[in-house]
């Protein structure tokens, strides 16, 4: 029952991604690339790129993208519904508690402990994408080094730290740079 299986896997993504946006990425990678091999690391990175370039939460983008590839439109709906399912209950419960006691301090103190773990997990996901870029998806070896990718990464990272440009602009320029350099030296 593939629909149920998709639903269940994305339910876990929805349930354990705390802090929104980027926090969902390591979980999606774990369910989709590591555990189920629904996407390769390179396809996963394309998915993150697409999610960055289009409106909507990354969880929804990922659920729809993976769901439709594994089991068509039904799969997309099952996965997407799975990803929002835990929110429906937990948000309602928290809202109830909030309106009853009008305090969020215990919740926020627990959330504060999630944050360092989430930062580490996002760092792990980001570094595995960087490894894919730097070694063209191969193992860590000199002959796999992708100089164009490393150059683009370094330039983009420097620009982001220095001038805080719009990420969509940075990615678009990297895409253009990848095309130009790839045609010249590839």
């Amino acid at each position: 029952m593939i629909y149920l299986y998709l639903f269940w896997n994305f339910l876990q993504v929805g349930l354990f991604s705390i802090g929104g946006g980027y926090a969902a990425m390591p979980l999606i990678q774990s369910r989709v690339v590591t555990e189920n091999a629904w996407l390769t690391m390179s396809e996963f990175t394309d998915l993150v790129t697409i999610a960055e370039m289009t409106p909507g939460p990354i969880v929804i983008n990922a659920a729809t993208f993976v769901g439709v590839r594994i089991a068509g439109v039904g799969g997309a709906l099952a996965a997407t519904f799975g990803s929002i399912f835990p929110s429906l209950f937990i948000v309602s419960l928290l809202a109830f508690v909030y309106y009853r006691y009008k305090t969020l301090s215990l919740l926020q103190s627990i959330l504060a402990s999630f944050r360092p773990a989430v930062v580490a997990l996002i760092a792990g996901a980001g570094l595995s994408i960087l490894k894919l870029v730097a070694f063209s998806g191969g193992g860590i070896a000199a002959e796999n080094l992708n100089y164009i990718g490393i150059l683009l990464f370094a330039a983009a990272f420097f620009a982001l730290r220095q001038w805080k440009p719009n990420p969509i602009l940075v990615m678009s320029l990297c895409g253009a740079g990848g095309l130009a350099l790839g045609l010249l030296f590839g």
Binding site: D46, T49, F157, V170, G175, G182
Partner: peptide, 25 residues
């Protein structure tokens, strides 16, 4: 080629976010 270039950009965007979040922690 474009997608491959954009992957480099995505890695930079994510690690930039990590630096910002890490600073807060």
């Amino acid at each position: 080629l474009v997608l491959k270039g954009m992957q480099a950009g995505v890695a930079a965007v994510i690690l930039d976010v990590v630096c910002n979040l890490g600073k807060k922690v």
